[in-house]
């Protein structure tokens, strides 16, 4: 075990937690406003594909990052229209967005790059820059968490956002425009999940591959629940899940059980999901969702 617990494991944990933090904090803005966001996975894929494709054409990772934010924000806005304006079931609509981004990047990359589902490899100097072995996006993620903590609990916007998610009737009576805040929350979730996705394709790796998020959007959702919909706890949950992921990678083929067999990675991969179920059931401190989560607001009812 000595060889496993090293500084590289710490770095690896931070790298793997980075996309989770962006997506989970994104989900936090949406869910705190009362809209369930199952679509984080799809929005991350939207960001990842757009970032890689734009960077390929413009040779600028910043243009890639910006376009990823815009693209994911656009689709989050669509999701918001379907859920808020047309009062669709938020889980169903989110599932639709997720399936859309299994297909859309594949079709687009097939047409643009004549490949089935991936974008061309980018040279290393066109990727997002690193500072002290960590991507700037990782460092910004930390900043994001503390900014979110401040915004949520110390600004009028944060107070309104939370009130809309907890008790929209009361918020409405106090003159707050419920649905406008919900649109803002969902679109913000798109912007942030888009950054998380961009980090995957033009930070951690150098191209987009089919379904490259591989469930990270759902792990982010799990972290959000495990973190009880609070910014700092959510970040800690992301770090824990990132650590489990880093451990899986480092143990592959190295660590052995006392019996001499490989440690089955599948059991480590299960950790985030099992933890979420246990936490939701209230075995380790109760995780309470925003009061009006998933309930569309109708002024007249």
């Amino acid at each position: 075990m000595r060889s496993i617990l090293t500084l590289s494991l710490v770095f690896s944990t931070i790298r793997l937690a980075t996309p989770l933090v962006w997506a989970a904090i994104g989900g936090l803005y949406s869910e705190r406003s009362g809209v369930i966001n199952i679509a984080l996975e799809g929005l991350m894929l939207a960001g990842a594909f757009t970032a890689a494709a734009t960077t390929y054409y413009t040779h600028s990772p910043w243009a890639g990052l910006g376009s990823a934010m815009l693209a994911a924000a656009f689709f989050a806005f669509l999701l918001a229209i379907v859920c808020i304006r047309f009062k669709a079931n938020e889980v169903v609509a989110g599932t639709g967005i997720n399936i859309l981004f299994l297909g859309l990047p594949a079709v687009l990359s097939g047409a643009l790059f004549l490949s089935s589902g991936s974008t061309p490899q980018l040279p290393k100097d066109e990727l997002l820059p690193e500072v002290a072995q960590l991507s700037v996006v990782s460092l910004l993620a930390l900043l994001l968490v503390f900014v979110t903590q401040y915004v949520l609990y110390r600004t009028p916007f944060g107070l309104r956002l939370r009130s809309v998610g907890e008790n929209p009737e009361a918020a409405d009576a106090a003159g707050i425009r419920v649905n406008r805040l919900r649109y803002t929350g969902v679109v913000l979730s798109g912007v942030l999940a888009g950054i998380g996705g961009a980090y995957l394709s033009i930070g951690q790796s150098s191209l987009f591959t089919r379904n490259m998020t591989a469930g990270r959007g759902f792990i982010a959702l799990a972290a959000l629940i495990f973190g009880k919909w609070r910014p700092i706890q959510t970040m800690l949950a992301c770090l824990l899940f990132g650590f489990a992921d880093a451990l899986t990678i480092q143990m592959q083929g190295v660590a052995k059980l006392p019996s001499g067999e490989d440690v089955p990675v599948q059991f480590i991969q299960m950790i985030p999901y099992v933890v979420t179920i246990v936490v939701l059931a209230g075995f380790i401190g109760h995780s309470r969702a925003p009061g009006a989560l998933g309930v569309p607001y109708d002024k007249e009812s």
């Binding site: 047309f86 009062k87 669709a88 639709g96 859309l100 297909g103």
Partner: peptide, 24 residues
């Protein structure tokens, strides 16, 4: 020439979104 079979996934997703947004 350019369309891949993943267009099926896109159609599936669009069906879900339009059915979900029935109120439209």
């Amino acid at each position: 020439q350019l369309v891949s079979k993943d267009i099926v996934l896109i159609l599936q997703a669009l069906v879900i979104l339009f059915v979900a947004a029935e109120a439209m």
